[in-house]
Write a protein that binds this DNA or RNA. Structure first.
Lengths: 142, 142
DNA sequence: TTCGTTGCAAAAGGTTTGCATACCA
DNA sequence: TGGTATGCAAACCTTTTGCAACGAA
């Protein structure tokens, strides 16, 4: 999919380069945190980039499969996507109120997961870790 | 909700004791692992315990809120429920192929989560950890 | 008798898919 | 031109809800 230049960084993925995909990718990067497909869609339409909802979903899927986006689920089961600049596995803590997300140091968890993988007898172990709370700002606001 | 005796253990929750709730609770316990509401529903109907799907959902919700069930999400976003004998917070590793679940030692993760809570500036931090892989059996079967 | 609980059907959401059309390469 | 991507609407699925009827206490 699309190869675009954004803020000096070049994002390359297989497939065809279409305006829609550029829009979706840019909007995702601009979001600077986790967003739902629906939100992204609404935002794009409002900005005058008439993209179809299905295209948003399809693009996000491609990005995710290509390792360029992280997925997390909010408490309602809705999927939230976030652009991933690095290719490394990353964990975040998410504010339940405003959605602010911050990467967290998770070496300990990685180590633990690896350990469980070793001693559980399970193979091809994957892990999902989701942290949520109230960010400093929201914490103050009550 | 219901107070029933099962295999020597007494499960007590506030509310009214109805046959439906007993059936759902028993079916959940019998599942001995994670099951979806839909599966539980189908199973109950087949066993001749004509319970409504909404009742299954409502009962599972009550159980979860009462701390007597754990929830996990499978890769499709479907919620899986598991009866929780102890009241403690527990983590599992789930087989992606057969669904087998095994509790894992997660003190390290708990400690890490607490640590992140402390240093991230976030309050009321909650965490979700989901591990999946191929269990020894499925691993062998290919 | 009371009011929590049930069951059905309909509604809600989010996400996916079928298919004809548009368009990148 | 060939094959991929798009857009719309319909389909899907799981989960929730409205409401009248039921039944545990």
């Amino acid at each position: 999919m699309t190869a675009i230049r954004y803020d000096g960084e070049v994002v390359v993925l297989g497939g065809r380069r279409t305006p829609q995909r550029k829009w979706v990718l840019n909007a995702l990067i601009d979001s600077n945190g986790f967003v739902s497909a629906q939100t992204l869609y609404t935002r794009l339409v409002q900005l005058g980039s008439p993209v179809g909802l299905s295209t948003v979903y399809r693009t996000l899927r491609v990005l995710t499969e290509g390792g360029r986006a992280d997925i997390v689920r909010d408490s309602n089961g809705e999927r939230l996507f976030r652009y991933r600049p690095s290719v490394e596995h990353q964990h975040y803590i998410l504010c339940r109120r405003c959605g602010l997300s911050t990467a967290v140091e998770a070496t300990a968890v990685e180590a633990w997961a690896k350990n469980v993988a070793t001693f559980s007898g399970f193979a091809e172990v994957e892990h999902t870790v989701e942290l949520s709370g109230l960010c400093p700002q929201c914490r103050v606001r009550g």
